[in-house]
């Protein structure tokens, strides 16, 4: 019986002594923190994806509390809704940003881009990229090892049977992890566009036309036909590569038909009607049409 009593008493004693020590230590090393940080962190999705550019959700919360305007702070996962909640909590204005989505800019399917060799090293695009040109003749295109797939925390990007990554539009939150992971800079965050409709150049090859064409049938060869066709000045051609500025693009899709290699892609548009030859609609009409859709 006495064993039991001694045990209980000594354990209690140890507990009390430890509690006192802990209390004083906690007092001594207390860190003063703005309580609003916790509030803001509570509003964030808590995925800690780092897509905002800060180390985790708490990082963004700290930055948001410190910053006066919330400029340049955006949680890509929560989007505008979360940001307006945060602004409300902090009593500030928030600038609304258009929702974005990751876009893979490479056409190098097995059919378009013949393989010239076989890679036998560790399955990592980063390693392959530092080693050599890749399995095809294109020094700019997708390497196909799936670093972007591994980087995605939202299960929103997968390799398809053509060996190219495909973004799941439902799941993508535009956190930008895949953009950082891709050693060739193929993936870009673009505006989601009205009704998710987008037009973009699906190629990043800066090779001269002939070289690019030889490596890949669907490469952008920098011919500039799209830029001539575009009435809004949205397309620039630099280093043998066309780029569509999504802020200027009105989604008229003329460039898509103009491209001789099919490097420009349109997504989520209804199938084109096989229209008889008629005068092209003016930009104003085009815009109206878009609004109606």
């Amino acid at each position: 019986m006495s064993t039991l009593v001694i045990t209980i008493i000594s354990l209690c004693a140890i507990g009390i002594v430890s509690a006192v020590i802990l209390y004083f230590v906690a007092q001594k090393f207390k860190v003063e923190e703005d309580p609003r940080i916790d509030i803001v962190e509570g509003l964030l999705p808590g995925a800690n994806c780092g897509g905002c550019g800060y180390p985790g959700c708490r990082g963004l919360a700290e930055a948001a509390v410190k910053s006066d305007t919330l400029d340049g702070i955006l949680c890509p996962v929560g989007g505008a809704a979360t940001m307006s909640k945060i602004a409300e909590a902090l009593g500030r204005e928030v600038s609304v940003q258009a929702p974005k989505i990751a876009v893979v800019r490479c056409n190098g399917t097995c059919d378009n881009r013949p393989r010239t060799n076989r890679y036998d090293g560790a399955q990592s695009c980063a390693i392959m990229h530092t080693l050599y040109i890749g399995e095809t003749g294109c020094a700019f295109g997708c390497l196909g090892c799936g670093d972007c797939v591994n980087a995605c925390q939202f299960d929103a990007i997968h390799m398809d049977e053509n060996g190219l990554p495909v973004v799941d539009e439902e799941k993508c939150v535009a956190c930008g992890a895949c953009v950082k992971a891709c050693p060739r800079g193929i993936i870009e965050l673009r505006n989601k566009g009205p009704k998710n409709r987008r037009v973009f150049v699906s190629c990043v090859s800066k090779d001269k036309g002939a070289v690019a064409r030889k490596a890949c049938k669907a490469a952008c060869i920098g011919c500039g036909k799209c830029a001539k066709e575009c009435q809004f000045g949205a397309i620039t051609v630099e280093n043998n590569l066309a780029y569509i500025d999504f802020n200027k693009c009105r989604l008229c899709r003329k460039c898509v038909s103009a491209c001789p290699t099919g490097a420009i892609h349109e997504v989520n548009f209804p199938p084109r009607k096989v229209e008889p030859e008629k005068a092209p609609s003016t930009p104003v009409e085009e815009e109206k049409k878009n609004e109606q859709l």
Partner: peptide, 9 residues
């Protein structure tokens, strides 16, 4: 011939 293996050392 055109299917050479490539790997790091």
């Amino acid at each position: 011939m055109d299917k050479l293996l490539i790997s790091p050392s």
